[in-house]
């Protein structure tokens, strides 16, 4: 146990256990407060180094604090995720078997959909197709809970997609079960579920915020692989990275 691992690290791990997922600014203030309360020299901006020290202890427990941008607006998010699929997972969970089955079907629909999102009405209609019958109300409450706990995301038009926490947690499951559908982003190499796909070669796919970064200085953007004109409109997200 390296002496660099202090009560401040334990406090941050406990906060991640309690909350599961946090925005970047909350992680920064958490680490700052934890260091201050434990009399540990403040890490300042080196939050990722602090998180790395925690992860070096957590990996033995098949747990990890991962970082990813929300696909919609590029906001940076940290989450404490499970990295192994062992059967203890089926023993208890704060979701009922019915809710988990619904979640599994929603993930399946989102991953196999054209543009990585599904309407909330389609999600509720899934309730009838489940093995374990679930009422529309129960399905509605389940979806509300999945969004509140940031496994899923819902936008203004009611479209449901996988939130960053959901993608980080299920990465292994997605890559192995949906290998045909799961693509990594041409620019940042991270998984991209909802993004822009080149309609020329159908190979290059970009996160919205990565398309913004790649094409921001180019008047008529072309696909970096097949040179076909990039037909999607280039978003102007404030959340996205200007430079990485």
């Amino acid at each position: 146990m390296s002496k660099m691992y202090t009560d401040a690290h334990r406090l941050v791990v406990q906060a991640f256990l309690a909350r599961g997922v946090m925005d970047e600014k909350d992680v920064k203030s958490l680490v700052h407060t934890a260091c201050e309360r434990c009399g540990v020299p403040n890490v300042g901006e080196r939050v990722d180094n602090f998180i790395h020290q925690i992860n070096s202890q957590l990996h033995k427990m098949a747990m990890e604090i991962k970082k990813k941008r929300e696909e919609e607006d590029g906001a940076q998010v940290y989450a404490l995720v499970q990295t192994a699929e062992h059967q203890i997972g089926k023993i208890i969970n704060n979701y009922s078997p019915k809710e988990l089955e619904l979640f599994k079907e929603i993930v399946s629909k989102v991953i196999t959909s054209e543009n990585g999102e599904v309407s909330s009405t389609d999600c509720l209609n899934l309730a009838d197709a489940l093995e374990r019958r679930i009422t529309k109300d129960e399905a509605q409450n389940a979806v509300k809970k999945f969004v509140e706990e940031r496994w899923l995301r819902i936008d203004e038009e009611g479209q449901i997609s996988l939130a960053a926490r959901g993608i980080m947690e299920l990465q292994m499951f997605l890559q192995e079960k949906y290998s045909d559908f799961i693509v990594t982003c041409y620019l940042c190499q991270d998984i991209v579920v909802k993004g822009q796909l080149c309609d020329g070669c159908g190979k290059v796919k970009l996160h919205n915020f990565c398309a913004q970064r790649l094409f921001q200085t180019r008047p008529n953007p072309k696909c970096p692989a097949c040179e076909v004109n990039w037909s999607h409109d280039i978003p102007h997200l404030n959340g996205g990275p200007v430079e990485e």
Partner: peptide
């Protein structure tokens, strides 16, 4: 096995139900 037992404890704290010795042998 140590990693699994640690996770088992962290998960069981969801509903605060104590773990019995038999649970550890059977489940982990």
């Amino acid at each position: 096995k140590v990693g699994e037992l640690v996770q088992y404890f962290l998960i069981m704290e969801q509903n605060k139900i104590p773990i019995k010795r038999g649970d550890i042998s059977r489940n982990v």
